[in-house]
Nucleic acid binder design. Structure first.
Lengths: 298, 298
DNA sequence: ATCATTGCTTAAGTAACACTTATGCTTACA
DNA sequence: TGTAAGCATAAGTGTTACTTAAGCAATGAT
């Protein structure tokens, strides 16, 4: 690679003015410095860049070629720096956000819509997926912030470089349809009574169910009949309504149905399990105005 | 503009490795120097570019943007420098040549065709026109070399920054058709006899005719009847053959016709006027291998 | 758990080199 | 012919980028 990029800056200026004296004035250095810098560059490239004529430096073909490389760069740089300045001045620019599928396509998009009404110069790039996929991307600098629904069990301790703050705490209920309930769960609810039922969960390790049982009964029930595994709250909800069995869903999603009696939720006397949606950022990363505005409002 | 371009080179290397230590190794400087350079750049931009994490530098969005500007530049630069190297190694690349219309579209193009058979990596950009238009472009570095038919009268002294060498010396004759001759020029040829004839010239100052008369009779004849002015040797030639009158043409173009007797040329006893086609280059400009090869063969 | 390793940062000293001042040369223009 | 403008070169100086060294934090192995 070229040893000294600064000489290119001098070259660029000389080329524009076809004059060392004019370049010196623009660069706030002496004409001699410009001349020396050009000489060094020519030596370095072992190529003549200008023909010295009286009161004028005439570019050679090589100089023309070099200028065509340097010119778009300088222009791009000026534009880019101006953009950085603008981003520091107020909320604008791109925000790259990761979020769980359901939360991202529901709450987050709604919030973004509201946010953009106040800050139309901010635009978004949302990546939906598991925190397991999202957090490494955050750590690699590909995302600015990530929403993660980290269950109390795992996570937490294995994330030293992250700054975590809870934004939403939604109650999780174990629910089934009224029909399923009246058919399979008459009488008081006990772990033993539940053990014979059909269940729905989000992935094959049944993390949601295990978590719920540990919270409410201090133990997980092995050998549950998980009849449906699907990575979608909406799908689980539909399964519940269709009488497939019992599944974990955010309580606010079934509020109407619970009141109407079409859906029934297991109550154990203990407070409901809380699903904390956390906002994760890289520890030590300065927040841009756009990011600040986003964080303040959430 | 940015004060120090060299820091961008360091930034570029850091970004590629996401590591200051690796960048230091590649740049053959200490890791500390890399760290300091990055710090200076961030200060200069007043923007955080990397989040310092253990054994890793994680780029921010701003760094990504900056990289997208710098990266194509570095790649373009590498390509461009490789090209310069290649051009120095052997005859290749672009040659920008200026020439008079007739010479350029006839002799020059023929020569280029032969030249390219030996050096297929050399390509050409030919500008046709008056030396008056071409030489300033040569002086401005827009052309590498110019063929010029400079009449002895002017030129020569007003071109101090140019290096001139004659490449072709063609005899110019004042000719007319056999029919025109027998009808209008019986007997011995004198200036007085010629004065009553019709003439053809290349431009309205009748430079060719004046030049010819000064050479052969040491004076120019004012008030000549110039019945056709056209900037084309071929057109003049056709005019002569058509019996329009007398015109100046290169002797070799009418050699056959002179021998056959269909065209007749004025002979004064003096040696013929010589039209020197000169090759003009910028004094002090180093010739590329392609240019060298071109000059050697001409 | 503890220790060794790795990588980044900061501080201080040094060495390199870019810049300035000064001079001379060339050319254009009055 | 003289003067002014522009570039090149030389010598000296000043800035600053770099090196060396120490400190800190996080990781992974024993």
């Amino acid at each position: 690679m070229l040893t000294d990029f600064n000489r290119l800056k001098v070259f660029y200026t000389i080329y524009r003015y076809k004059s060392a004296a004019a370049a010196a004035k623009e660069l706030y250095i002496s004409q001699s410095a410009v001349s020396q810098s050009l000489g060094k560059l020519e030596q370095e490239l072992k190529t003549q860049l200008f023909v010295r004529m009286h009161k004028k430096l005439v570019p050679t073909a090589a100089a023309g070629r070099l200028y065509e490389i340097v010119e778009p760069f300088v222009r791009g740089l000026e534009g880019g720096l101006a953009w950085l300045e603008a981003e520091k001045a107020g909320p604008r620019g791109m925000l790259r956000i990761g979020a769980p599928v359901e939360f991202g396509s529901r709450n987050l998009v709604e919030f973004i819509a509201a946010f953009r009404r106040r800050h139309p110069a901010v635009f978004f790039e949302v990546s939906l997926g598991h925190p397991d996929m999202l957090l490494p991307r955050l750590a690699a600098g590909e995302l600015d912030l990530v929403f993660a629904d980290i269950f109390p069990g795992r996570g937490a301790k294995s994330l030293p470089p992250f700054a975590v703050s809870t934004v939403i705490a939604e109650k999780l209920v174990l629910a089934c349809s009224a029909g399923y309930h009246s058919a399979r769960l008459r009488g008081t609810i006990t772990p033993a009574a539940l053990a014979g039922c059909e269940f729905l969960d989000y992935s094959h390790g049944r993390p949601a169910l295990d978590n719920w049982f540990r919270h409410h009964y201090d133990k997980s029930l092995p050998g549950l009949k998980v009849v449906l595994t699907v990575e979608s709250v909406q799908a689980i909800l539909n399964g519940i309504k269709g009488g497939l069995g019992l599944g974990i869903v955010p309580e606010y999603l079934v509020e109407k149905e619970l009141k109407a009696g079409s859906v029934w939720a297991v109550r154990t006397g203990r407070p409901e399990l809380i699903n904390r949606i956390s906002l994760v950022r890289l520890k030590g990363k300065a927040a841009s105005p756009a990011e600040k505005a986003f964080l303040e409002n959430y």
